[in-house]
Simulated scan of single mutants.
Amino acid sequence: MIIRYERNGKVKHGWMVEEDNKVRVIEGDIYKIQSAKPIMTGLELPLDEIVLKAPSAPSKVVCIGINYRDHAAEMDIDLPEEPLMFLKPSTTVVGPGEPIVYPKLTQNLHYEGELAVVIKKEAKQVKAEDAEDYILGFTCAIDVTARDLQMSDGQWTRAKGFDTFCPLGPAIAAKLDYQNLRIVTKVNGEVRQDANTSQMIFTIPQLVEAVSAVMTLLPGDVILTGTPSGVGELRPGDEVSVTIEGIGTLATHVVQAEE
């Protein structure tokens, strides 16, 4: 699996070798597919010598709302006839272990565990049947939401857009049967969401087609594919994690914004 890490002040990509607790260094741009194709070097680093970063540094995060039937029911919202899109700015993205900051402007912070799609090359007006050619892989995500602001504003930009509101990681699984993956969200070790990606309303190829019909997706951009039922509140001090089979566990915690 592909990771993005920091070591000695430099950020690079690597290939996670979990059984050996090591990372193989990748040189070059992982999004280049022509002559500048990245190469796997012979250099290996112990995991305790690196700091995991968000596996992608997207120009934008495109989110899909209400893409699981059970989540629509718990939110008392009609099923959408087409994908419901909204954006998170790039400044929402943090990596594994980097805290979610609880803003002063909200009194009702929620977690939403999600499967995230990472785009590997420029995608514009892509047809669903061609979507897989544009996907680098998949990772875990938490769509953090200030629920009270979402309800009061009537649109979602502020509620979804605070810094640290999009943890991603720990790695990008480059080859994955995304149609049938168990996704589990825990808060303080207690299971809050337990579902399967087979329960999505719109498939991932359909989402790539819908999003790329509106905006050009760039290498490294991320699509969050929606959350299942079981969303709920976070408080300062809480530990939250999302585990998706075939990818791993994204774990982080909540801290109160400084005065």
Rank of each mutant, 00 (worst) to 15 (best):
M1L: 14
I2P: 10
I3A: 02
G9R: 15
K10H: 09
I26Y: 11
E27L: 15
E27A: 14
G28Q: 11
I30P: 12
Y31P: 05
K32F: 12
T41K: 05
V51F: 09
K53R: 15
K53W: 03
P55W: 01
S56R: 00
A57H: 09
I64H: 00
Y68L: 09
R69G: 11
H71G: 04
A72H: 11
A72W: 07
E74Y: 15
M75F: 08
I77R: 15
D78Y: 08
F86M: 02
L87A: 09
P89G: 02
P89V: 01
S90M: 01
T92F: 00
V94I: 01
E98W: 01
I100A: 05
V101S: 03
P103T: 12
K104Y: 12
N108W: 09
N108I: 08
E112M: 08
E112A: 09
G113K: 12
L115F: 10
V117P: 02
I119R: 03
I119H: 05
K121A: 10
K121P: 03
A123V: 09
K127Y: 11
A128D: 03
A128K: 04
E129V: 07
E132G: 10
E132L: 15
D133V: 13
T139M: 08
I142S: 00
V144K: 01
D148A: 12
M151D: 15
M151K: 15
M151F: 11
S152K: 15
G154Y: 08
Q155N: 07
A159F: 01
C166W: 02
L168D: 00
A171G: 02
I172F: 10
A173W: 07
A173Y: 07
A174M: 14
D177A: 14
D177E: 14
Q179A: 14
R182F: 02
I183V: 13
I183Q: 12
T185G: 08
T185C: 14
T185E: 14
K186L: 07
K186R: 15
V187F: 05
V191G: 05
V191Y: 09
D194P: 13
M200K: 02
F202I: 09
P205Q: 04
A210Q: 07
V211G: 05
V211M: 06
V211I: 15
L217T: 04
P219C: 10
G220F: 06
G220Y: 08
I223G: 01
I223N: 01
I223Y: 00
T225I: 07
T225M: 04
T225L: 06
T227M: 05
T227P: 00
T227S: 00
P228Q: 06
P228S: 12
P228C: 11
S229Y: 12
G230I: 05
G232Y: 09
R235E: 14
P236S: 11
D238A: 04
V242N: 06
G246V: 06
I247M: 04
I247L: 06
T249L: 10
T252N: 07
V254L: 12
V254E: 10
A257R: 06
E258W: 13
E258Y: 04
